[in-house]
Structures are given as C-alpha cells and as structure tokens.
Design a protein around this nucleic acid. Structure first.
Lengths: 217, 217
DNA sequence: TAGATTGTTAATCGATTAACAATC
DNA sequence: TAGATTGTTAATCGATTAACAATC
C-alpha cells in the first residue's frame, strides 16, 4: 500500500489533514476540492495533491475528494484501527494531565497501566486506572505485553528505563522527559515532545518582533 | 543584530542548541568544536556552523566555540533576559500541569495570573497563584498589561477569546486548544501545541513499522 | 610555524509550487 | 459535450551538505 518511505514532512501533516477532514465531515460537507481544502488549511492545492498521492489516488477528476472516505482513508493510513496496549510511566502533574486530557482510544492507543515510584501516588486512580508501584512494571509487561510507553519522568529515569522497556517489548515511546530519546535499536520509534522548546520558540518570536519594532524607530 | 529574517528551521533548532550547551556547560566543558557538537546532537558540523552564523560569528578559527559564552549568546538571541508578563487561561488538568511543570522564569516568562470559569476551581492556588474568575480577566489585563497568554481551553473558547485578548494587548499565544490558532493581526505571534497530532505521528510510525514487517514476510 | 577549525561560498539534495494532460 | 479537478511530471525554491580559503 505505502509506496516506499514517505517523507517526515508529509507524515507531520497527516494528523492535521485528519483533523480538518473530521471537522468538515461533522459540518456535513460531502466533497471538497484540493483548492478549497488548501484555502481552509493555509496550504497550496498542489501540496495537498502531492501529499495525498504518496498514499494513493483518493480523488476523482472533475469532482474532488469525498470528505468522509478520505477521512477514513487517512485514519487507516495512520493505523488508528488497531489499538496498541500502552503504559504511562510517571503519574506526576504532567502524566496525570495527559491521562485525563487525551482521548487515547480514538487515536489508536489503549492505556492499560500507570506506574510511579512515589508512595503518595501508588493506589490512587486516574481515569479509572490504578497507579501501580514501578517495581511491578516488569511483571506487568511480561503478563500484558504493552507495546507503547509514555514517559513523564525526569531525564535520568528516562535514560535508565528506556533500555529496559525495549527489552520488555516496548516498540514506541511518547517521551515528555527533558531529554532527546534516541534509541538506536532496530524497530523502535520515538516521538519526543519538548514543551520547553516550544515555549522557547514563542520567546524567540516575541524577541524578534521587539527587535524589528526597535529597528523601525 | 539579526541579519534579516532567520528561517523557521533554524529557529526551531535554537532551543535544542541551548539545551545541549547548558548540559555541556554544567558538565564543565569549556570549549567545543562544531564537529564534536554535531556528533553529540546528531547533526552535521556544517549545519551547526550555518545555523550559528545566522546570528553572528561566535566561534574562533582553530579553537571552536566557548561553551559558556555561546550558551549565553543563544539565550540573548532567544530573548530570555526580559521576562514577559504571562497569563494562563484554563486551569483544568492540562493548565494545572503546565503551571506546575514548566519553569517559566528561566524561559523568559513571568506567570502573573490564572483564570478559569469553573466555580470549583476559582480561589484555589496553583504554584502560589490564585485562580481568578474569567470575568476578572478584562480588569486584570487593563491593570497589569500582560503580553503573553497560555490557552488551555476548548477550541470554541479559544476562538472567541483570542480576539479579545489581542485587543487587551496580548502579543504572544501559547495555544494548547485543539485548534490551529491563526491570528492575522500584525505583530501577534502564536505557538500552537497539538499533543494529539504528536501522538498520531507516533501511531503512524508504529503502523508503518508493522507494514514493513509484514512486507518482509 | 603547523594544525585545527571556523566562516562562507558553491554544490547537492529534497520539498514545494506550477503546469498540464488525463479523465470524471 | 464542456467544465472542473485530479494525478503526475517538470520547474523552482529553500535547506542541507561539502569544500576550502581565512585565520586563530
């Protein structure tokens, strides 16, 4: 189905297409042309057609794209259909917020375990899941075979733990620790989220704006 | 100081340079060559030299870069020196987690107010700041002149509120709502964070890995 | 001085945009 | 059929990499 490897730029845009198509679908739009979608998303029609054609020809000449079927197609491409057993490690502020905030099911994940080493947190529940002692992690993985781990733990813990988790069968990491997780194992994927970096980019843009304004004067 | 406009690709890498340089500095490293830094960061030496030269010649031929002074230089470029008065809107799970999780001061922000419309939350404290009723937002802005707003509110609220906030003097938005905030006002900057999109990218990569493995068989 | 490494220019690569024949 | 819009190829643009003279 997939033609060789799709570039990272295209992949990063996929979830955004998916979002816009869902909204269009919910609003009752049946069909859309690449030109109209481009205007809505702030892209070019060419780019949209190029992007979609990495995965196949989903449109119809003279008509455009069927919103609902394109939406479903992209969902299939992103692999949302088969939920992956997921564990969360680190039930601090961020871990708890993500658990409560994110709709895992609709995004292809099934949160099955939460772990922390803080005795104050162990036994409490988040989103209906009981926080377990980190010492139970090994047994849990052996028994339940989760394949995805969300890391909401400090840098040092992430470095230490990630190797063990790979050995326990984890294939994908959603990493919030302040550390660029780069696992050189074959067949492991990592998505690093650096909220601090994101905030710093905003800071830069504000600083740059100030500098421009000062130059004008 | 800045030579015209620096590309978005370079800007997105700046916080990462900053992180690595701080770590090197804390580890006691005095100088580093573009080659060594490239190896550490998984970049090319060329790219590092090109990136840094967007802002000026911070190195010295035959020596490399002084870690501490390059670190400080990048901090200046990112504008970390002058803290910007910041407000957080939406003190739900995500808003609370971000408040407690993020070191705003070291990143050039000064969180001065938190707002929510949920009566259960109003009056409570997060990180030493009392959650105020959203109805007090207007007065607060008129009196305190915050310039940055963090949006941890639903899509609809973000759309409605963002225009008002611009009118109240907000120049920068750190937007966590499930919505691509795109303010076409002059002199307003937005950093959208889509955690759902990030998770979807991980999902795609896992699906792609599965497809590759199936193809092999 | 000789060795190392930068700053910078030129070459390459990849991604975006434009153009247009195919076709619904 | 005529009009619209895709899929796809070619052209352009920008970003990354390579090369090397300048120089510490």
């Amino acid at each position: 189905m997939a033609k060789g490897s799709v570039s990272a730029s295209v992949i990063r845009r996929l979830p955004r297409y998916y979002r816009f198509l869902r909204e269009l679908s919910e609003a009752g739009t049946v069909r859309i042309s690449s030109g109209d979608l481009a205007r809505k998303m702030g892209l070019t029609a060419s780019q949209i057609r190029q992007d979609l054609n990495c995965f196949g020809g989903f449109g119809q000449q003279g008509y455009g794209y069927n919103v609902k079927s394109l939406y479903e197609e992209i969902g299939r491409i992103m692999g949302l259909g088969t939920p992956r057993k997921t564990i969360l490690i680190g039930a601090g502020n961020l871990g708890r917020a993500i658990t409560q905030h994110m709709d895992f099911a609709s995004r292809g994940f099934d949160l099955t375990g939460i772990f922390d080493c803080n005795p104050e947190l162990i036994g409490r529940q988040i989103a209906g899941i009981t926080i377990q002692n980190s010492t139970a992690l090994y047994d849990f993985c052996v028994r339940n075979h989760p394949t995805v781990a969300i890391l909401c733990i400090p840098k040092e813990a992430a470095i230490k733990l990630s190797r063990d988790l790979v050995a326990l069968g984890i294939k994908g990491f959603w990493n919030f620790s302040h550390y660029d997780l780069l696992l050189d194992y074959e067949g492991i994927v990592v998505e690093n989220v650096h909220l601090g970096d994101s905030l710093s980019i905003l800071c830069y843009q504000l600083a740059e704006m100030d500098r421009e304004n000062n130059d004008k004067k």
